[in-house]
């Protein structure tokens, strides 16, 4: 049977136009909250367009009309069958006090794994420097770290002029953007079934372990702690959280012991990944400011004890925040 196209279009057009206008309002957010009668009417229009599409696909293959109706049904389908909550505005305070720490705790196993990989890297870096001091030039990427730590400390402590003059803000911005890029890469490499994320965390650990061992062996532990702790107390956990996000993504991709399909697994963690990486971004802004404005100043300008105490306080506060904040509220599901 071939339908009478002219009659079909004349009958259907008013309903299609009304549905189109409805959808425009919904998509632009100008429809407000629909009441029950409006919802029923919207559903009726959707069903009517669906029926028309089915009819034209069965009885007539007029492609232009079919494409038009397919587009209409596709848009209405997305609005009607969507069950995830739509958030047009993000409330920052509830997000920072509840959503972020709760998400961190929900995915804490991946964080533990991230810490473990970094610690293995640290051990590797320390052992490499211990058994082969020549490895320093290969492992340490920054030229100022390749000399004798005692010489560097003496140079930094005896410096007469402030080498950060007129450069603190730009240095801070460079640190923020660079570290955020590395963190996003750690997340994105989760798509390599986690191999890229693991390598990045391991390499980070290797550098950290090598530097720590090098300075500790040279008897410069106090300088090391005073230099690294103020910003590292936030920066290192931030990179670990980025690694956590990458491992969560990898976990969803691999899907060990989960019977749900890949698309559903990825859908389930997508919201958590966004929350974690935005959290990492915030932490790195703070770390960038501290590294530029505090970490680069040593004794006698700022006593090491003050810098170490500052770093310890940051670390404790961050630990309390991630482990306690939002624990009284309801744990939200990933959006």
């Amino acid at each position: 049977m071939i339908i009478d196209l002219e009659k079909f279009m004349a009958t259907g057009r008013p309903f299609w136009t009304e549905l189109e206008k409805f959808l425009d309002r919904l998509e632009n957010g100008t429809s407000g909250r629909l009441d029950l009668a409006q919802l029923r009417h919207f559903h009726h229009l959707y069903e009517r367009a669906s029926a028309d599409l089915a009819k034209i696909m069965t009885f007539s293959a007029e492609p232009e009309l079919q494409r038009y109706l397919e587009n209409l049904v596709a848009r209405a389908y997305g609005e009607i069958h969507e069950t995830r909550e739509r958030r047009r505005r993000v409330a920052f305070w509830p997000w920072i006090t509840q959503t972020l720490p709760q998400t961190f705790r929900r995915q804490v196993r991946a964080f533990h794994l991230s810490v473990a990989i970094t610690l293995v890297g640290c051990a590797f870096g320390a052992l490499a420097i211990a058994f082969d001091p020549e490895a320093k030039s290969v492992i340490m990427p920054f030229p100022h770290l390749q000399g004798d730590p005692a010489d560097r400390v003496a140079h930094e402590e005896n410096a007469d002029d402030d080498r950060m003059t007129d450069g603190k803000t730009s240095f801070s911005a460079t640190l923020m953007t660079h570290n955020t890029k590395v963190s996003i890469l750690a997340l994105a490499l989760g798509m390599s079934w986690g191999i890229g994320t693991i390598l990045l965390l391991f390499y980070n650990g290797v550098i950290l372990g090598a530097i720590a061992f090098d300075y500790a062996r040279a008897g410069q532990t106090e300088f090391l702690l005073g230099w690294l702790l103020p910003h590292g107390a936030v920066e290192i956990p931030a990179i670990l959280i980025a690694g956590q996000a990458g491992l969560v993504l990898a976990g969803a991709l691999v899907g060990w012991g989960k019977r749900i399909p890949l698309t559903e697994r990825l859908r389930a963690v997508a919201g958590d990944l966004m929350t974690l990486i935005f959290g990492v971004g915030l932490l790195l802004i703070w770390a960038g400011i501290i590294e530029s404005f505090l970490s680069q100043y040593h004794e006698p300008v700022i006593p090491y004890a003050v810098k170490i105490a500052f770093g310890c306080v940051e670390l404790v506060l961050l630990f309390l925040y991630l482990s306690r904040a939002g624990s009284s509220g309801q744990t939200p599901r990933a959006p």
Binding site: R84, A188, G271
Partner: peptide, 23 residues
Amino acid sequence: VVDAGGLRLHFHQIVLRNLLRFV
């Protein structure tokens, strides 16, 4: 860009697909 299941596109999907440009 649309949701692969035909559903509404969410903000976290947009963020994720754009951040993964790094890879």
